[in-house]
Design a protein around this nucleic acid. Structure first.
Lengths: 247, 247
DNA sequence: GTCACCAAGTTGCCTGACAAGTGGAAATTT
DNA sequence: AAATTTCCACTTGTCAGGCAACTTGGTGAC
């Protein structure tokens, strides 16, 4: 009944799926679901490491690794000697956004929607409070983009750098980090989905016209115009994305 | 020179700060910085677990735990038999937003700014595509808020639920999760900072008037009006927050 | 020159053990 | 009997050592 039970031999339980998802990860995912779906309520104590270890047929280090993840994500807090407890969601200080299956069309749509919201507002803020240095940097990126176009290149990197310079001008690290992540995600998707055809035959120049409108609004510090220009640009970009998605 | 070197005895190296930050956490933070600051470049191989173990004077399980965190955050990828490598930031599929020191006034300001951007756009989308069920839920939350006010309560929970019902109507989990996090964070700050005085003497009713404007815009599916009403509400809320912050 | 094979190195996971901290029950005192 | 102290079982944090699975580069056979 106590702790001297013979250690269960369960190597055969190895889930060995293709490209092993790592035991700790699957366990962490399960516990994480238990919390999010309310099977484990805030403040409630988790089973002890040993109990989980027995219940799931994995070793304690593996359980510790899984719980460590949850702790890292702010879902649980542990107190040495006492146990592990489900954290109060109101006090959680870390937000985790996982874009899992990027082949899902809805997911892309939702991501792009969030991207539009963040970048449009960021562009507005940039117009409100860009410094002279910010403006110079943005102009430099715009010129670099034009140079790339003149060389006949699609200029994806220059495009990204232009937007990044604008976001930087918001002087808000949360906008910067989130926008950076979303932007990378979408651009990477476009790249891997081999939609580069979208960047052909005069399209870059059309994009550049929209960039210029954004730049000019930021230059004359007109927030409303900047937002509208950004919204227009993003709307068109989303439209181009949609169009090439169906192909 | 090989692996038979005597295990270093370094229990005295225990950093024992107040409320022990856990060895693995500090190690993960250091490695994480190395990556973010570019001392470790994308694609580059990390030192082996054993090397790190020796270098930092901790055991291999601890190193594993730290690397596990980085893996979880999408900063590194590991290949059994090969090693651990810094992940390509373009391919990173998880975004992590950590709101560390919440006593910092700038940080609050930045968070609120992001919250405003997300919720205003979310409210707009809610007006665009709320279902009848969504609308009913939002109305129920609005009524519950009114009931709380009539009972003379501040109705913070009802307020939160009202906003949550709106966000839910966007039908976009990214908006929902991010907004949920930011909202909780700000409200929790207000609570702990004992600014409840902000919720006195007719203020709830003033807030409710703004809520009603938002609700009506969503009801008649007027996106622009909904956004404007939400922006107005959030601007006022931010103003109230600022005012009570200086006290 | 090409290909199969092997050995060293690395991560993934396990067992067993001890230290540090917690909380409640038992023992002691009032 | 009630209050206080002491102590012990339990839990998490960390360590050591070991084996299995996998990768990679080099070596030898052809």
């Amino acid at each position: 009944m106590s702790t001297d039970a013979p250690a269960p031999r369960n190597r055969s339980h190895n889930v060995t799926l293709t490209r092993a998802p790592a035991l700790a990860d699957t366990l962490a995912a399960r516990l994480s679901e238990d919390i999010r779906d309310g099977r484990l309520k805030p403040g409630e104590q988790l089973p002890t490491e040993q109990q989980i270890s027995l219940a799931y047929g994995v070793s304690r280090p593996t359980v510790r690794e899984a719980i460590g993840r949850l702790k890292h994500d702010g879902l649980v807090v542990t107190r040495q000697g006492a146990g592990a407890f489900v954290a109060d969601p109101n006090a959680a200080s870390v937000f985790r956004l996982s874009v899992a299956d990027f082949s899902n069309k809805d997911e892309i749509h939702n991501i792009v929607e969030l991207l539009m919201a963040v970048e449009a507002t960021a562009t507005q803020h940039a117009a409100e409070r860009r410094s002279a240095a910010n403006l110079a940097e943005i102009r430099a990126r715009l010129d670099a983009m034009q140079a790339a176009i003149d060389r006949g290149e699609p200029g994806v990197d220059e495009d990204f750098a232009f937007h990044r310079a604008i976001i930087e001008a918001t002087n808000n690290p949360f906008f910067r980090d989130l926008s950076d992540f979303l932007d990378r995600r979408v651009r990477n998707f476009i790249r891997t989905a081999r939609l580069n055809s979208a960047r052909q035959a005069g399209l870059p120049q059309a994009v550049q016209v929209e960039h210029i409108r954004i730049f000019e609004a930021i230059e004359r510090q007109a927030p409303a115009d900047a937002r509208e220009a950004a919204e227009n640009h993003l709307r068109n970009a989303a439209k181009r994305l949609e169009r090439y998605l169906v192909l």
